[in-house]
């Protein structure tokens, strides 16, 4: 473990450093990503006013506000893309170099993603989270979050992070087959926005669709941690959800390893 930390920590630190170099860019990206939260916020407000029911998809209007902004906080922790690094390496032809180095390519990418995650979590997300919590208690009149919920939420988010990066690594392998990964990334983002619950809580989908989602890793990425945070998943349900997340981490880890092996074999044959 210690050895691992020693090898991969520099990747994390480098990513952190790079993030800080783009200061102006960084603040703006916070703003941009908050745009969609605000659009959702206003949209949901209008939706609830137009509805004659107090709860939609199992959430009250106040809970929905929390949901919308927790999507922001959670996504900034979880969605730390690595497929763009993969495509960059493929385009530049540096993947082969990475095969020579005595490190695991995937691990180095994940370490890098972790650096980005830590930075984004520390700089905007924590502040927004705290702000939201204060707003929630004072203005929305909801109960404050419990320590257990926070702990479970963080645990669940870290698993979500792993699920996301492991999935995104598999997705990044597409880069070996097309140089134009931009279009694919766009589609990935749109799809994930939907299937993870970023755009709309999973509970809004017809129940048949929800049952299909149960067998996919996506709802584990964003929806699960937020439900835990909102106190919708407690006790055994929460335990089960965390277990399911862990299972996805294992499955995607193994799957990614297998795909990587096949792709690199091809790379060695074709020369990269």
């Amino acid at each position: 473990m210690r050895k691992y930390v020693k090898i991969y920590l520099p990747f994390t630190l480098n990513a952190l450093k790079r993030q800080m170099a783009y200061k102006g860019a960084f603040y703006l990206f916070i703003l941009v990503s908050l745009f969609s939260s605000f659009i959702s916020y206003y949209l949901w407000k209008a939706i609830y006013t137009s509805s004659d029911q107090a709860t939609l998809g199992g959430l009250t209007q106040e809970e929905m506000v929390v949901y919308v902004f927790m999507v922001y906080v959670t996504s900034s922790i979880v969605m730390s893309s690595i497929s763009n690094y993969v495509s960059e390496d493929v385009v530049k032809g540096t993947v082969a170099m990475n095969l020579i180095k005595p490190i695991d390519y995937r691990m180095s990418l994940i370490a890098m993603a972790a650096g980005n995650m830590i930075y984004r979590f520390l700089v905007p997300s924590v502040a927004i989270w705290i702000g939201l919590e204060i707003y929630k208690v004072t203005a929305l009149g909801l109960r404050p979050v419990t320590a257990v919920e926070v702990l479970l939420y963080l645990l669940s988010s870290i698993m979500s992070f792993l699920i996301y990066v492991l999935f995104d690594f598999c997705f990044g392998m597409v880069a070996f087959f097309t140089t134009y990964i931009f279009g694919m990334m766009l589609a990935e983002e749109a799809l994930l926005g939907f299937l993870t619950g970023q755009l709309i809580p999973i509970s809004f989908f017809p129940s048949a669709v929800q049952r299909v989602f149960d067998f996919l890793p996506f709802s584990s990425m964003v929806y699960t941690p937020i439900m835990i945070y909102l106190g919708k998943y407690t006790g055994r349900t929460a335990g089960f959800m965390l277990f399911r997340q862990a299972a996805w981490v294992v499955i995607l880890y193994v799957a990614g390893g297998l795909i990587w092996k096949r792709v690199t074999k091809r790379l060695v044959v074709l020369g990269g």
Partner: peptide, 9 residues
Amino acid sequence: GLKGAVKGL
């Protein structure tokens, strides 16, 4: 350095 990056902010 990392410190410099923070300062640069």
